[in-house]
């Protein structure tokens, strides 16, 4: 892998991994070892989070296609060894949350993927890319679930900040689905949302308590997009810069 070519993104836009039952099996230990190392790396490299999580779903029975996807991440990393998180000094002290989802992103069981991220000022402090536990029937539902988990994280961050002596109220949570936003405000569309589990309505309470405030954002500016689907090079680079994941040479 030392002499491989560099890739511009960690995962190809056309890459939809499935169980690949007819593929050639690869050494499970080796694959798991690789995924483990990459997961450790996500602590400082949010840009590979989605790709790594994607590959990590196939650890039980890894095939060559999965291994190739993992290798692509390594190719990407090779070209971006100096990339890291940049926390600039000059920014206002406010907390923001972004949530997005990829409706039925998983080809296997048609579950959606939540992607959330949180910024303090311009610093990316927390992010998440997770396949949802239940199948969503609509994009709104998928977004609603993502917003719920994003809100939970906001609660924790808010508490932590209050320990630091910083009081934040009405944390803006940016979502790009109006139906989901409406759902958090009023129990509308009963006929289509009656099946949604109670736990996901947690966000509704938080909104009414004034912990957070759901705001609409255009899909183009949705930063959490980064953690939900494979992106093309230009979009990937744009979001990466917006999230403050920069090359060290651009900083110092």
């Amino acid at each position: 892998m030392d002499s491989c070519k560099e890739a511009s993104t960690p995962i190809a836009t056309s890459c939809y991994l499935d169980a690949d039952e007819h593929g050639i099996s690869v050494d499970q230990t080796k694959f798991r070892g690789l995924i483990g190392s990459l997961l450790y790396l996500t602590a400082s490299r949010p840009d590979i989070t989605f790709a790594v999580c994607m590959c990590a779903r196939f650890q039980a029975n890894p095939k060559e296609s999965h291994f190739n996807a993992a290798k692509r991440i390594l190719k990407y990393l090779k070209g971006t060894t100096n990339v890291g998180l940049w926390y600039p000094n000059e920014a206002t002290l406010n907390l923001k949350g972004y949530s997005d989802s990829d409706f039925a992103g998983c080809k296997l069981d048609r579950k959606s993927t939540s992607g959330t991220c949180h910024l303090l000022g311009a610093s990316l402090i927390s992010w998440n890319s997770k396949k949802q536990a239940c199948v969503a029937l609509s994009t709104a539902e998928a977004e609603y679930i993502a917003a719920g988990s994003c809100c939970a994280q906001i609660c924790w961050l808010k508490q932590q900040l209050s320990d630091f002596g910083l009081k934040v109220t009405k944390v803006p949570l940016f979502c790009d689905n109006t139906s989901a936003i409406n759902l958090t405000k009023n129990p509308v569309h009963h006929s289509r949302t009656k099946h949604i589990e109670i736990r996901h309505h947690f966000i509704r309470e938080q909104v009414s308590n004034g912990i957070c405030e759901i705001k609409f954002i255009e899909s183009e500016k949705q930063l959490a997009d980064f953690f939900t689907k494979p992106l093309a090079k230009d979009r990937f680079n744009y979001l990466r810069t917006e999230l403050g994941i920069l090359d060290y040479s651009n900083v110092a």
């Binding site: 600039p88 002290l93 932590q160």
Partner: peptide, 16 residues
């Protein structure tokens, strides 16, 4: 938690 560490870092940075 690693998030707590990052939060502290970001906070320290912003508070100077």
């Amino acid at each position: 938690r690693i998030e707590a560490v990052r939060l502290l870092l970001a906070y320290a940075c912003l508070s100077g």
